[in-house]
Design a protein around this nucleic acid. Sequence first.
RNA 1: GCGACCGUAGCUCAGUUGGUUAGAGCGCCGGUUUGUGGUACCGGAGGUCGGGGAUUCGAGCUCCCUCGGUCGCCCCA
Length: 417
Amino acid sequence: MSKNTPKAIRGTQDIFGSDADAFAHVVDTFERVRKLYRFRRIEMPVFEKTEVFARSLGETTDVVSKEMYSFEDRGGDSLTLRPEFTAGIARAYLTNGWQQHAPLKVGTHGPLFRYERPQKGRYRQFHQIDAEIIGAGEPQADVELLAMADQLLRELGIHDVTLHLNTLGDADSREAWRDALVKYFRAVKGDLSEDSQERLEKNPLRILDSKDRKDKPFLPDAPKIDEFLSDEARTFFEAVTSGLDAAGVKWVRAESLVRGLDYYRHTAFEFIPDEGSASADKLGSQSTVLGGGRYDGLIENLGGPATPAVGWAAGIERLAMLVGERDADIADVSIAVESDDLINTGISANTAIRAAGFSTEIIATGSPRKRFDKAAKVNAKVLLGISAQNGETVFNLRSAPGVEEYERIEAILKKLR
RNA sequence: GCGACCGUAGCUCAGUUGGUUAGAGCGCCGGUUUGUGGUACCGGAGGUCGGGGAUUCGAGCUCCCUCGGUCGCCCCA
């Protein structure tokens, strides 16, 4: 490789082979399950006006303040490559009058962009699948959404991942809890880790899931959200949990699970690999495989009417790491043209076999004597050698015993003559 | 943004305390053999050792800078 050759941008990936197959498998499975739950497919632009994200995620969040790919276009507008799906979907809901379809269940997938330090399961261009229910304020919507996520994971063959569930309460409950946490931690501020001292100002809820040894002694006695829940919020959460039980979705209560983005209310959740499981191993420190919650405040932030909504997103790369090796694509037929005179015969055979719906690979380059060996290395059900013997064209057809494609290919070749 | 480790052929990796022309396996291309569910042998192409600078008679190896990769922190899917 010349040193002039441009390199890929940091944190982007070129996905090939079995990785690409695993990626496609995740997307295909999502699409299938999506239809099972009657979520409608939507396609969204990859960029939006910067304010769409700034207003909905909150100016002070890390995502907005230091991770967005923002730029000015030629008309002078500030645009941003989407760092997440929800804000754009909320914007589309308002600008397209999708209120008329409420409650609206939608799903999409595609690339997202965040300027972060790449590491395992984390990229600057990454991909998510996403599901949202907009305009539904009842806990059944949360249950529906979580049941879908749970089934998706099971259909992907991922069984060592568990739903961690929490409630952040309504806006008032959340504020009261937050104030109590700040008060509690401020009293011991000097003993907290540096990170947590900073979090105390910016994002006190985050202290609860700090990994720092210095913080741990203070966590068990920290105020619990349950003490601040309004009756309404409590009833809501109970309806979610009992609904999950009825749907057969396993869950555990995670009192310290919070969401980083400001717009979340009530239900918050993450699917996390069980400790010591194979999935936990494969993901390293990027443990959350699917996460989301209720964001009743977001659409108002964008200037719309008060509109309740719930949603989740899952990293396709992370899921792909968990689904393991996919079976490689097997060709139906591998064709070796063992003489240059017969290349057109090979092309005709190739066309006829493909027209009948069989996948083929044709080997007609390089040393004629080695073409059969090359064709044999293609993972194919049927192997076809085309060679000349005593001036006659010979089709040498081979397969393992009982391969049903064999006879149909043989019939196609007979018609060819 | 912070920290640790790592960059040698297309891939996986050797390369001694700094010392001739940097190697192997696989893959690729070709020849011969075999004459068919993946043969064997022989040969060939392919490297400014990530890039730049410094030290030295001499650097793949030491030092500095830089770019990239991997993993962790932060944050998050």
